[in-house]
Simulated scan of single mutants.
Amino acid sequence: MNEAVQDTVRELMGQAAIVLVSPKFAENVGSAARVAANMGIGRLILVCREVPDRERMLTLATAKAAHLIDTLEHHRELGEALAPFGWVLGTSARQGRKRTTVNSPRQLMGEVLPQLKNNRVALLFGPEDRGLANEELRYCNQITTIPTVDFSSLNLAQAVAILCHELHYSVLDAVSRTAFPVSAPKQGDKQELEAMFGHVEETLATIGFLKKGEDDYWMKSIRQFLGRIGLKSKEIKIIRGVCRQLLWQDRQKSPGKGKSE
């Protein structure tokens, strides 16, 4: 690999971060740090009540990834941790009525790659015993399942390794062949999106589109649709402007209703 290719791969991989939600074992955090460092990802984020024991994390991180343990970010709320990111790829082994069909990591990398130049990308993983819950997956632009035979559950560190490798391989292959896809524009971050989704939900409830018992289903579909498109900050402001106008008109008909922020 020539130096120019190596520098470009390093720059693009530097846009990605590993986000671990409530990891149960400090050693898995250490292993995830080691994988991230090997693949050129320089940001490790934990969402949990307390930071795991540092020495246990360092045992498997080894000296080469110790810097990720020393600089890891800690948040108590997932929304806060994901606020600066423009694109989130979540992992899930579970399928069910409320979960849509998802693709393998390799199939989805073609959609992730264009985001890397102008957007921060988060690879999101849930705890070892249950994975990501539906309320956590709602932050994701994409959801992926790692293909397995029969036994679907993977160790957290293994799942991190597979996704990091697929991302690194896709970046390296595209850069080496000078066939990198056209870069996506800078997206609105998750903080902007969550504010917009709150406004959209309030508006749809006000006009009667959302009905009690069905609101989660419809909002999940709306989140997936708008999240997959990738909205810029200006477009988010336009949607929120439309919501404000609809809510304002409704208040004119019913003056006693509260005012939206």
Rank of each mutant, 00 (worst) to 15 (best):
D129V: 11
D129G: 09
R130V: 10
L132V: 08
A133V: 15
E135Y: 03
E136F: 04
L137G: 12
L137A: 02
R138M: 14
C140G: 06
C140Y: 07
T144M: 04
I146Q: 02
P147L: 06
P147G: 04
P147D: 06
T148I: 08
T148Q: 09
D150Q: 12
F151G: 02
S152G: 01
L154T: 01
L156V: 00
A157I: 04
V160G: 02
V160N: 01
A161L: 07
C164P: 03
E166T: 05
E166N: 07
Y169S: 11
S170R: 08
S170W: 09
V171Y: 00
V171S: 02
L172M: 08
L172P: 08
D173Q: 11
V175G: 03
V175Y: 04
R177H: 10
T178D: 10
T178R: 06
A179W: 07
V182C: 05
S183E: 03
P185F: 02
P185D: 06
K186R: 15
K190F: 00
K190Q: 13
E194L: 15
E194Y: 13
M196D: 10
M196Q: 08
H199F: 00
H199D: 09
V200D: 00
E201D: 05
E201G: 05
E201L: 01
E201N: 03
I207C: 00
L210H: 11
L210E: 05
K212F: 12
G213Q: 12
G213R: 14
E214K: 12
E214Q: 13
Y217F: 14
W218K: 14
M219K: 07
M219T: 09
S221Y: 12
S221K: 13
F225W: 01
F225E: 00
F225R: 04
I229V: 06
G230Q: 04
S233F: 10
K234H: 14
K234G: 13
I236H: 09
K237C: 03
